[in-house]
Design a protein around this nucleic acid. Structure first.
Length: 232
DNA sequence: AATGTACACAACCGCGATGCG
DNA sequence: TCGCATCGCGGTTGTGTACAT
């Protein structure tokens, strides 16, 4: 397992692999390499990028600091509210929470939670606003989570999943037209989505918007449930 | 000015999930 | 099917900085 890989990395660490703070030079090397060639193999990237770091460290540095789309600066009140609500609903699934906060990393959110929000909640455990919001978002989140458990071919929630490769993987399945891929969205919703299905992010519905309205859940979703019930 | 404390953030570590030969 | 390599996640620790005493 990875234990062995990690162990090797640790041994290598004793063998000259650098640990600790990243220097500007290291950042630039990693940024330049990943920007140019992508993150095709984190284990080999430090070697090709000329870094004396383990792949894990490089990945972490890129994901949490160097990525160009990372938003820096203080958390806005709306972001705090979102985190509080999602944490109440999802628990400590920081990566899942991060998907609702573009530009924020799971590590950043986790740190913010532990240093600020958790205390806030501890001081005011009967935070009705948080509880109410969590309760109202719970049902829609459940729908989203259950949908995600369904066959991936039917649930296209983001651009990473919506790839031609995925399509090819399931081409033998008789789903027919493209719109079937998007959670049974009908033509109307497909029009709303618009853009390039394979490259543009697909925003389902924001289940946690402040003016949260359960009626925003596309009714097609329920049609989809009848056709493809969760296989539990 | 020196020291202690709290806070914020970066980085590490271990483990489970996943992909692949 | 199995075993290995790699990835991704969450918990935890380390470190620098700001502020209080």
């Amino acid at each position: 397992m990875e234990e062995e890989g990690d162990e090797r990395e640790r041994e290598n660490g004793e063998n000259g692999r650098k640990k600790g703070k990243w220097s500007k030079e290291e950042d630039e090397k990693l940024r330049a390499y990943v920007t140019k060639y992508g993150s095709w193999n984190w284990r080999l990237i430090p070697k090709f990028a000329g870094l004396s770091r383990c792949g894990k460290s490089c990945r972490l540095r890129w994901m949490n600091y160097l990525r160009p789309d990372i938003k820096r600066g203080n958390f806005q009140k709306e972001e705090d509210q979102t985190i509080l609500r999602l944490q109440a609903t999802l628990g400590n699934r920081w990566s899942a929470i991060a998907t609702y906060l573009p530009g924020r990393t799971d590590n950043e959110i986790k740190n913010h939670w532990h240093t600020n929000l958790k205390k806030l909640l501890d001081q005011n455990p009967s935070n009705t606003e948080v509880e109410d919001a969590a309760a109202s978002s719970c049902s829609e989140l459940r729908i989203r989570e259950e949908e995600e458990e369904l066959d991936e071919t039917l649930i296209v929630l983001n651009s990473e999943m919506a790839t031609p490769e995925l399509a090819a993987k399931h081409e033998g399945m008789n789903f027919g037209e493209t719109e079937t891929w998007v959670v049974g969205l009908n033509a109307e919703h497909s029009m709303e989505v618009g853009g390039n299905l394979w490259t543009d992010p697909f925003v389902f519905e924001d289940p946690l918007s402040l003016d949260n309205n359960p009626t925003h859940v596309p009714m097609d979703l329920f049609e989809h449930y009848e056709m493809f019930p969760p296989s539990n």
